[in-house]
Write a protein that binds this DNA or RNA. Structure first.
Lengths: 130, 130
DNA sequence: CAGTATCCTGTTCGATACTG
DNA sequence: CAGTATCGAACAGGATACTG
């Protein structure tokens, strides 16, 4: 993985920040992809559950407090479309459907860690200064 | 900064994932803080602009394409409340108001880089497998 | 310059009920 | 078991006009 920093690129004037959108399009798209799979009320709980282990629909419903079928179904579809979740149909009788993370999905772990780290540091600073 | 990993903690069974909410409350709150300042249509553009340099209201309006006064004002207030943006009133005549990032705000840089890195890797994998 | 106020639209999410 | 269908409330965000 290259050592790319948005803000470094901006400071190096590789990017002319007249307008934040003048970032290379791929950068914007890439960040958006990430934010898309992390945003909303249920995506994080779902990913968290699947990071723990692959699960079937009903197990996820039991695992994630208060989520409805509608929401779980909807979010899983989106996550699948975005390539972070795989829907695996096992040809048993009756068929068994399992949801699991793709490699990309698994690697969200690192992102989440970084986010958590920031959040904890931020809370420290925030509460100490008050 | 400690080397804390949500998912590692879960796997170590420090956390009993019957329910994702059984994560230490601080973890959930911390991650939420981070997501709150990154989510929505305008927060990222605003932070991006301020990472580049501190700016006044009107300059931000020119810098960020298509943002309205209403949204800029609203988002800046939220970011200030969340401790990532500082509103500085300079006692010139007339007064000059400048927005700048707090230390926490600045350190979002690292988070953004990690998010970008994931996004780029994800796109690679996603498009290569298709 | 640095915002507010008002009104309006589209999207997200919850509740509830239903299906092969 | 693994979802879908329908309805309605809440909220995010846009357009436009206005203010000290």
């Amino acid at each position: 993985m290259k050592d790319i920093s948005i803000e470094q690129a901006i400071k190096d004037e590789q990017i002319n920040l007249k307008d934040i959108k003048s970032c290379p399009v791929q950068f914007v798209l890439a960040v958006n992809d990430a934010l898309n799979v992390l945003t909303g009320k249920w995506k994080l709980p779902i990913i968290g559950a699947l990071l723990f282990k692959s699960m079937r629909f009903s197990e996820m419903k039991k695992t994630i407090p208060k989520i409805t079928s509608r929401m779980l179904s909807k979010e899983l579809k989106e996550l699948e479309l975005n390539g972070v979740v795989k829907r695996v149909v096992d040809d048993t009788t009756p068929v068994t459907i399992t949801y699991q993370l793709t490699d990309s999905g698994m690697s969200l772990n690192g992102v989440l860690d970084k986010i958590l780290e920031w959040g904890l540091g931020h809370r420290n600073e925030f509460f100490s200064q008050a």
